[in-house]
Design a protein around this nucleic acid. Structure first.
Lengths: 354, 354
DNA sequence: CTGAAAGCGCTTACAG
DNA sequence: CTGAAAGCGCTTACAG
C-alpha cells in the first residue's frame, strides 16, 4: 500500500526497471536523474515501470558511485536544551525541503577522545557537516575537523570580524546584551550584574568568539553610561546553576538588576530570589536570554532576548547546501536580529540611582 | 593532525592499505573485520599500514557490499518538546555506544502525504527505524511503514496487551495517572478534573493505545473511589493551550484539583489561575505529567509524574539492535516505572469533601 | 537519443 | 592462513 515491494522481496533495482521498460539500465539512470536527452516516449515508459515496481534509487549505491551524498550530520551537545533543539529543528526543516538526510552526533563532553570520536562518526557518513558551536565541545569539534571537510557552524558572536572563509553564522548577542542592559539602566538601576554561561574560549584561547560577547555587550553598556562594572558571576547552563547563584545574589542588598546568560539560569534565579523573600521585579529585576517556550508563562513572566535559533539553523543549512552543490564559498555573517521581549520580571529600580 | 589524509587527497582505500602492507586487499578486509584466521604477523603489518595511512572503512561501500548498515533513523514529531528530545537523547546515547549512526526525520503533520514522505526518507537510508509514536503523526508513520521494515516504536501505554511481535515499548502512564489521582483524592479533594493532551486514536480507531491511558488511569481512580467523573477537557500540547483551559477552569468554583496531561499544559494553567486570582495550591491543586527540567523551579514547584524518556529511548534502541544483529524477535513491554514527584502545586482541598 | 564498459570501495563465497 | 573472482546498485565518460 505504500508502493513498496511486497514483504520479503528484494527491492527493485535499476535493472529490474530497465527490463520492465525494455530499455538499458543506463537509460533508466538518465530518466531518474532528469537527464534531458531521453525521448519523451521512452521516458514515459521508464516512468511507468518505476511506478509499477515501486522503484526507489539506492541512496548508498548512488553515494558510492557518484561520490556525492545528499546528507549532512549535525555535531551538537545535548539537544535537550532549547537553543540546540530549535537549531536542529531549523536544520532539519531546511534539509527536508532540499531532500537531504540529516544525521546527528552528540558531543558528550569536551574531552579530546570524545570529540574526536564524534568527528569521526560524523565524517564517516560522507556528507556535509553542521556544528553547533555554542559551547566548548562544539568549538573543539570545529578545531578537530579535517581542513577539507565541508562544514558550516553556528557560533557565538565573534569578538572581531572573522577571517573571510570562516564558515560561521551567528546572532548578534553582543548588541542584544547591550540593549537589554540599557533597558535596565533606563529603568533607573544604578548598575546591572551579569550571570555568565560558560565561555567557549578554552585554555589556549582558541574559541570562535571571545567566549563572552553577551558579557561584552553588557559591559559596553555599563561603561558608556559611566556605571560601575561588577565582576561577572560565572554559572552553568541549568536552572540549578541559576538557583545557586540566585541564593548568593539574594544576600547582596546592592544588586537590584541581573542579566542572566540564558533563560534557564534566570528561572533558577527567580526561584532562589522568591525563596529568599525578595520580590521580582519590585526588589530586583531579572532578565534572561533565549526566550525559551516556558518563559512567557512564568510568574513573573520573564523579560528576555528572543533569539531565532530556528532561523539560525536554516541559515546554516542554506550555506552548507550552497557549498556542497555549487561550491559557493561560505561567508561568515550574522543572521536574524535578536529582539528584546519586555515582560514582567524587569521594572523600576527600588530606589533612585545614587 | 587528526590522522586523516591531508587536504585534497583521496582517502586511503583498502587497496592502498594492502599495497602498503604487502598483502592482498581481502586480507585487509579480514583484519578490519576482526576475522580470526589471519597470522598475527600479517595482522600487525596491516594494522600498522591502517594507522600510517589513517585508513577508515567507507561506510557506504560497506553498506552496499554487505547489505547491512549500522544506522538507524528516528521518525518523530517536533523534537523541541521535552519528551521527544529526551527520548532522542536516549536513543543517540545507546546508538553511539554501539557505533550506530543516527538519522532523524521529523513528521511535520499527520497528513498522509507528509507522513509517507518521511517514511520514504527514513527507509531510504537502509538501516533500522525507531518511531516515537506518542502522537497521531507517529502512529500514522507506524501504519504506513512497509511490513518488513525493521522497526521499534515508543508508544503510549496500550489499552490492552498488544499482540506478540508488536515492536512496542512504553511507560505505564495509566498506573501513574491512577496514583496521582489517588494522591489528590487523599488530599481531600472531592474529585479531580483532567486536562487531556490530544489522543493518538485516529478516526479509524487504529492508534497504538486507546489514545487516553492517562485519562483511563485517572478515571479508574475516580470510579474506584466512587467519585463523580467530570468530562475530560481537551487541550493541546503547549503552554498556550493550558493557559486557555486554565482561564475556563478558573471560572468554575467547583474545581479544586486538576491533573494535566503534561507539564507544559500545567505551566499554562498555573499562569491563568494566578491571573484569575486563584491561589495554587490553596484554592486549586495542579499536577502535571513528564517532569520537564523547569518544573521543579516554578513557583509553586510543580507536582508531577516523572517519566524516564531517556531510558525509554535506550530501551527502544536495545530492542532494535537485537532485532538487527541477532534477528531477535521484539517483544512489547513497558519500561521504567513512572515516579510521583510531589512538590508544591498540590495541597489539601480548600474545604472538606461534601 | 541510447547502449556497452569500467569503476566507486567494499564483502562474500570459492579456491588453494 | 591467504589470494583471485564476482558482485552490491548505481554513475561516469565513451561510443555510436
Amino acid at each position: 500500500m505504500t508502493g513498496h515491494t511486497r514483504s520479503g522481496r528484494r527491492p527493485a533495482s535499476i535493472r529490474d526497471v530497465a527490463d520492465a521498460a525494455g530499455v538499458s539500465y543506463q537509460t533508466v539512470s538518465r530518466v531518474i536523474n532528469g537527464h534531458p536527452s531521453v525521448r519523451p516516449a521512452t521516458r514515459a515508459r521508464v516512468e511507468a515501470a518505476v511506478a509499477a515496481l515501486g522503484f526507489r534509487r539506492s541512496a548508498t549505491a548512488h553515494a558510492l558511485a557518484s561520490g556525492r551524498t545528499r546528507a549532512l550530520t549535525v555535531l551538537t551537545s545535548n539537544t535537550t536544551h532549547y537553543g540546540y533543539a530549535a537549531a536542529l529543528r531549523g536544520i532539519e526543516e531546511a534539509a527536508r525541503a532540499a531532500s537531504f538526510a540529516v544525521g546527528i552526533a552528540v558531543l558528550e563532553s569536551e574531552e579530546d577522545e570524545v570529540v574526536r570520536d564524534a568527528v569521526r562518526r560524523a565524517t564517516d557518513t560522507g556528507g556535509g557537516l553542521i556544528v553547533i558551536a555554542y559551547d566548548r565541545p562544539g568549538v573543539r569539534a570545529l578545531q578537530l575537523l579535517p581542513d577539507d571537510a565541508p562544514v558550516v557552524a553556528a557560533v557565538e558572536t565573534p569578538a572581531t570580524t572573522p577571517p573571510p572563509g570562516s564558515p560561521w553564522v551567528w546572532t548578534d548577542d553582543r548588541a542584544a546584551a547591550h540593549r537589554m542592559t540599557r533597558h535596565l539602566l533606563d529603568l533607573g538601576h544604578h548598575t546591572v550584574h551579569y550571570l555568565a554561561i560558560p565561555s567557549t574560549t578554552d585554555s589556549t584561547g582558541t574559541g570562535t568568539g571571545d567566549g563572552a560577547q553577551r558579557a561584552a555587550g553588557w559591559r559596553d553598556a555599563l561603561r558608556e553610561a559611566g556605571r560601575p562594572i561588577p565582576e561577572p558571576r560565572p554559572a552553568g547552563w541549568e536552572p540549578a546553576d541559576g538557583y545557586a547563584a540566585g541564593q548568593r545574589l539574594a544576600r547582596d542588598p546592592e544588586v537590584t538588576a541581573v542579566l542572566c546568560g540564558n533563560d534557564a539560569l534566570a528561572l533558577g534565579v527567580l526561584r532562589a530570589l522568591r525563596e529568599a523573600g525578595r520580590d521580582v521585579p519590585r526588589d530586583i529585576s531579572v532578565a534572561g536570554f533565549d526566550d525559551a517556550p516556558h518563559s512567557a508563562y512564568l510568574t513573573p513572566a520573564l523579560t528576555t532576548v528572543r533569539l531565532d535559533f530556528t532561523g539560525l539553523g536554516r541559515a546554516t543549512f542554506a550555506l552548507l547546501h550552497g557549498l556542497l552543490e555549487a561550491g559557493e564559498p561560505v561567508t561568515p555573517h550574522p543572521v536574524a536580529q535578536p529582539e528584546l521581549i519586555i515582560r514582567e520580571s524587569t521594572g523600576p529600580a527600588p530606589r533612585p540611582p545614587r
